[in-house]
Design a protein around this nucleic acid. Structure first.
Lengths: 240, 240
DNA sequence: CCCGTATAATGCTCTATAGCACATCCAAAC
DNA sequence: GTTTGGATGTGCTATAGAGCATTATACGGG
């Protein structure tokens, strides 16, 4: 009858909220038993199917595990593989300070290949930002990002000094990034890269070319990254 | 009442099967409308909730899309990114013949590092299979696989000549693979690899070290791959 | 001390029904 | 010609039950 919407949200979502709150508060730890279907139904005054729906969708989201005959248990925290993260976020997740240096930021108008990848007309004006990424004093990566100058007017060095490119796009332009397609291969260090990364010329580097899309499906950033293979490995998880 | 199990399988699964059959037969194409909840309930003689359950779980698997007020539609075929595929499967998905050559297959008993990755005692006997992967006459990859000799007795060259390692494990030993964790970096070709891959010594190669797990969560294969960067790029999709 | 068995608890499948929210389309009004 | 209503169909939330299948546990016998 759906009269269970006391505050506009469906009953099953309220039940999920109550469980999530207990998990976030630390009252429920991974492996702990969550109330059973019948118990939840009684506590929240809903029918069995409703309580069941709350638990079933929580399970499909990977937050709890259900074992027939045994009960429902808080799932161990998932390690997020293959997650699109900014450099700042990556470092933060490892407890390291993000340290990078902007080498140059300029506007180009004759990069038809890159414009094409961003689904822009050939002669579009593009912002190019070159940065080095550092860990323990030594640079280990060289990243060059390309964005539409038209879409992000005034995106300057100043806006990036104080934070990540990702958060600048979101806060200043309301663009939320959703996913990225990456091409990964190996290449040899050219003289300029070798010097910036402090390796020998011809040293093997991991090259990652990524096209980052916003939630609207629009290609937004094209990023070329060169990584010192002795300081960086990419971790990926694949599923069958 | 669960008396719907005419052949042991739940009613909602039979309904799903009927829909999937029509999709596979080409009678239903992406974008086509699937029967509605009420229609399915009537056709299959089940209650609305049961028909609904069939569609809801199909949706969670990404096979159909549901739009309130509009209906249920066959989802466009998903491009499978980050999918664990055997070499044979990868080639097949691009319409190319899989071509590879076994260089050696031997049994080792002193590879403690690799044994450890496979969660085996240090001195465990290991099968090592070295293969080259070819495309258009020229080798572009060198793959070395390690497996437990105890778990896969009799896994010999003969069993691999006629098919992929993945399918041999599944058919002959009942081991189903589920996911893989990969470490990816760049390295320089050593003399032996350079000769086998027909590149210059010191040429940059993409190195992928993957640990492949079975559905039971047991690490089953450790695979070291070296790929010519001029012939191979790895494609990855990441999500936020 | 170990092992089978009974029992209770839990999740799973399913019925039959109700009203709500949203999308689509067609006909009538402007 | 365009807009506005309504009818219809769809998915979504929810109820109040029933029996089945599987698991854990406690208890008794060996």
């Amino acid at each position: 009858m759906a009269q269970g919407r006391r505050n506009g949200t469906p009953a099953y979502q309220r039940i999920q909220g109550a469980i999530l709150k207990r998990i976030e508060a630390g009252q429920l730890k991974p492996g702990d038993a969550v109330s059973s279907e019948r118990e939840l139904a009684r506590i929240h005054g809903v029918s069995l199917m409703t309580a069941r729906h709350a638990l079933a969708t929580l399970e499909s989201e990977g937050l709890v595990e259900r074992r027939r005959g045994a009960g429902t248990f808080v799932a161990p925290p998932k390690i997020h593989f293959n997650k699109l993260m900014s450099f700042t976020e990556q470092m933060a997740s490892r407890g390291l300070p993000a340290c990078s240096k902007i080498l140059s930021s300029s506007i180009l108008d004759d990069e038809p290949d890159i414009a094409a990848r961003l689904a822009l007309p050939s002669a579009s004006r593009l912002i190019r930002i070159e940065r080095t990424r550092q860990a323990a004093d030594e640079p280990f990566a060289l990243e060059t990002a390309y964005l539409s100058a038209e879409q992000f007017p005034g995106l300057t060095r100043a806006g990036l000094e104080r934070g990540s490119l990702f958060s600048a796009l979101q806060q200043d332009y309301g663009v939320v990034l959703a996913h990225a397609d990456e091409e990964i291969d190996a290449t040899a260090a050219d003289p300029k890269s070798a010097e910036l990364l402090n390796v020998a010329r011809g040293a093997p580097l991991l090259r990652i070319r990524q096209l980052i899309f916003s939630i609207t499906g629009k290609p937004t950033i094209y990023m070329l990254g060169l990584y010192r293979s002795d300081r960086h490995t990419l971790l990926i998880r694949r599923f069958r």
